[in-house]
């Protein structure tokens, strides 16, 4: 009888830890800080629309935007038309499909248009982790040498483009020519 009573704390703990373990599966809070001035991290990840492996070598030797997006991300919906518009103006945009479901992501591009040169599939969030992505959307401006020059956390709209990106983009474009 007494012996059994001694097991009570253990049982309570097991129940509690089951909940904690389930709790871990929830959306984690994110890590701060991406580093402007750092080279774009090395990676090898699949393409969203084709059967191939992408790496930094697939980046064109030009100024590019890297846009982190996902279908679960609400703000990305708002941002998407702006990306379409930038692509139409000739801006090179590379998509980083972040912690997403591939099929839904493909459908998203069909429905909303595809402004991206290609899309890196980062299902585990490993590249996002190296970049210090805190969520989606985020946008990085990468120069022709592959160095991150500017970062936007949150929606990239016309106002943000004009204020934070356009001048630098034009300047880098001039340098790379």
């Amino acid at each position: 009888m007494n012996r059994i009573a001694l097991f009570v704390p253990l049982v309570l703990f097991v129940v509690l830890s089951l909940f904690l373990f389930k709790g871990l599966e929830r959306d984690p809070a994110q890590l701060p800080s991406a580093l402007v001035g750092e080279a774009f991290p090395v990676f090898a990840l699949p393409d969203l629309l084709e059967e191939r492996l992408l790496s930094t070598e697939d980046f064109p030797s030009q100024v590019v935007l890297v846009n982190i997006w996902a279908t679960w991300c609400f703000a990305c919906r708002i941002e998407h038309p702006m990306l379409n518009q930038l692509a139409a103006q000739g801006v090179n945009i590379i998509g980083l499909n972040y912690k997403d479901q591939t099929q839904q992501a493909q459908q998203w591009l069909q429905e909303r248009g595809n402004p991206y040169l290609f899309n890196i599939v980062d299902q585990q969030g490993s590249l996002g982790f190296d970049l210090g992505v805190t969520g989606a959307p985020e946008t990085y401006l990468i120069d022709a040498q592959g160095i991150i020059r500017q970062r936007r956390v949150g929606v990239l709209d016309q106002a943000v483009w004009d204020r934070e990106f356009n001048d630098l983009y034009q300047q880098l474009l001039g340098e790379s020519r």
Partner: peptide, 29 residues
């Protein structure tokens, strides 16, 4: 206050927790 959050670390800590607390409560029982 939570300034670093990463589920992978969480899993590690939880396993550690399970060993330390679970083990000691088992020993206690």
């Amino acid at each position: 206050h939570a300034f670093a959050a990463d589920p992978q670390r969480g899993v590690f800590i939880l396993i550690f927790l399970a060993i330390v607390i679970g083990g000691s409560l088992m020993l206690f029982a």
